[in-house]
Amino acid sequence: MSEHSVEEIKKHVRVYMLVFGSLAVLTAVTVVVGYLELPFVPALIVALLIATVKAGLVAAYFMHLVSEEQVIRSLVWLSLGLLLVMFLLFSVYYVDQIGLMIFGF
């Protein structure tokens, strides 16, 4: 990422400002949805969806993943995959044992 002309960087900067704007808007949306006091499952889905989009924006543009080399991207996918496996098995373990109490079933 260090081999860029001044012109290109200026283009980058415009993107950064756009990303900042979207992040601010999305934060506002999360908070507003939080005050709506939705039932748990929709609230969970909305909150995680927005958080993922925000995180994606930060990772893609601020952390330059969108134009990063394959080596780095594979590493990111690997750790995200493991993270997902961990979350999934930790929650499924409980659900398998006690049923879907948490979701009100």
């Binding site: 496996v85 098995l89 499924v92 373990y93």
Partner: peptide, 18 residues
């Protein structure tokens, strides 16, 4: 090796599927 860990925990009363 990341998805076998609970075979150390069979006697913890885990569910059938797990």
């Amino acid at each position: 090796s990341f998805i076998v860990w609970a075979h150390h925990m069979f006697i913890t009363g885990m569910g059938q599927a797990m």
